[in-house]
Amino acid sequence: MAELLNVNDINVYYGAIHAIKGVSFHVDEGEIVTLIGANGAGKSTTLHTISGLLRSKTGSITFDGKNIGNVQAHKLVEHGLAQVPEGRRIFLQMTVEENLEMGAYTQPNANTAASLERVYEQFPRLKERQRQIAGTLSGGEQQMLAMGRALMSKPKLLMLDEPSMGLAPILVEQIFDIIQKLHKAGTTILLVEQNAQMALSVADRAYVLETGKITLSGTGDELIHSDEVRKAYLGG
């Protein structure tokens, strides 16, 4: 499998705080890779650095063969990178359909109808609610909308930041079902999660992030059975 994303030795600072300390990892085409770790380990910071909202002082980020370390955030969508941000960050005052249209902002207008059709097929619930103001959706529906919105640009890599956050267990299962379906349909996924159990159960490979450093890596299966991971993240 070809390498789609390569993150090589990035260091990110928030003022004087050294948040990411020399993190390197890669995602191959067709994989689900997960970054797990406790709150504050630097998972979201890593994603934001890849998507250009934050900058690394060192190292490089290569996506689909191009160095994207200095590309502005809003230009990355055109390169095939989409992020579902933590806390969903949908546009609460806009309708469901308008939110999806924003996901297709970089696409030619002529493609929008077909993309909407495709996303509605993946998320029938969104179609039922297409004229509704997004702020009135339930948490699970909002997560679906955030994912649907990201898929509107037909990304080569979908980055999901804590998709299970704040959702009831049954909805978490639903969201992970959808993630697996998207994966089967050929989408490459980089998944950031605190819910290590769920994340490892769907991931091909995983990295453990602790206070800004990668401390462990392996296949999802290996890590789910690793003593260290069990103790730290899976409750013994």
Partner: peptide, 12 residues
Amino acid sequence: EDKDAARLMGIS
């Protein structure tokens, strides 16, 4: 509503 989310959509 949300500038960073808009950037992630590809909006300048």
